[in-house]
Design a binder for these strands. Structure first.
Lengths: 192, 192
DNA sequence: TTATAAAAAATGAACGTTCATTCATTAGAA
DNA sequence: TTCTAATGAATGAACGTTCATTTTTTATAA
């Protein structure tokens, strides 16, 4: 028990350190030596927990992606009305992107650069299935426009990445009122 | 005349090479030696045209951003009706993002990572002013929702980045019909 | 035009540094 | 004592950049 916890401890510290360094300085300025130092560990120790740097990055990506997906579907269940279900998921994602800033920023970076191995990136996509199912239902009920999942995603979830980036740069937080308006725009974009 | 052209030639070749390597393998796997080789030039030659690697990347960013902005406002003029003006600009941007794939992919990467110096990144933003002015007009005429420029951008232009990425990964091209539907969604998101 | 000198552009090898990774050794728990 | 986790110094490869030299272009004079 204790042993397991300790292992997780250092592993987590390493993942956290990597997240911070890659976010703030980019992959190319996040050397293993600095990651180790920030995690309070010797460089060689990294290799007890990860095969190499690429494995470290891939693991971080999958870890963060999993936490994101878990967040996205909190309180959601199949069978809810389409708009209600969509609202729940959308606000969950908004909360994650606008509060867990470091994690969300890192995901943005991974999705827009080739730093993650392709196979790993694809694995990260599978978590969104419930949302895709919901959209399918919405299309059948003619509540949602007959658009591909890609386009629906592009106009509802993806804009949140931009709002996150803006929020970070301007050091201001999107308040509840703005968030409601943003949701309305997302819904207007895809509703029939 | 000839001299000027030749200089531009090598500089252009270097920028092109950088664009390709950074796009396909990321900044950290785009060493100066490879950039030089791909441009058909000796490594030392790069330093005749650019101060260092950072300057090379910054220059590339500004060059591409300028070409993007030029494209965005082709055929647009002040005084057009808001929806018409927005349509022209939106389709221009869509054309750019979906056809000039390399350039657009590179811009995405720059906007989501810290590889560009902050001051340079801010300079790249100034080009969009006519669109911001148009939105201001739209808000005054109560055609466009009273949302900040950030949100309007997030729901109209930004989604195109996602569609670009998808198009790249799936090797399919968004046809005209899909493009029209995408425009409709963008407009639905922000119109009153 | 041709020959030659001066200037500019381009080069490839070399430099110092930084990096990811390894390994012999040590510290600590069982 | 035995075994595992952790270490810090060591290593070789790769990197960005520099520099002495060569090649190409331009300018000048015959």
């Amino acid at each position: 028990m204790e042993k397991k916890e300790k292992i997780t401890d250092k592993k987590t510290a390493l993942l956290d350190a990597t997240l911070n360094l890659v976010n703030n300085h980019g992959f190319h300025k996040a050397p293993m030596s600095k990651i180790a130092k920030l995690a309070g560990v010797a460089p060689a120790t990294i290799y007890l927990y990860f095969e190499n740097k690429q494995d470290l990055i891939n693991s971080l990506y999958l870890t963060v992606k999993a936490s994101f997906s878990e967040h996205a579907f909190k309180g959601y269940e199949d069978g809810l009305p389409v708009k209600k279900g969509f609202e729940i998921i959308w606000y969950n994602i908004a909360d994650y992107k606008l509060n867990k800033i470091d994690e969300a920023t890192f995901l943005s970076q991974c999705d827009n650069t080739p730093i993650i191995d392709e196979a790993v990136a694809e694995e990260g996509l599978k978590h969104l299935q419930p949302l895709l199912d919901l959209w399918e239902k919405g299309r059948k009920e003619e509540i949602v426009k007959p658009l591909s999942n890609y386009i629906l995603y592009a106009y509802t979830v993806y804009p949140l990445s931009f709002l996150l980036a803006i929020q970070e740069k301007n050091y201001y937080k999107l308040n509840d009122e703005m968030r409601q308006k943003a949701f309305q725009s997302a819904w207007d974009a895809i509703k029939i």
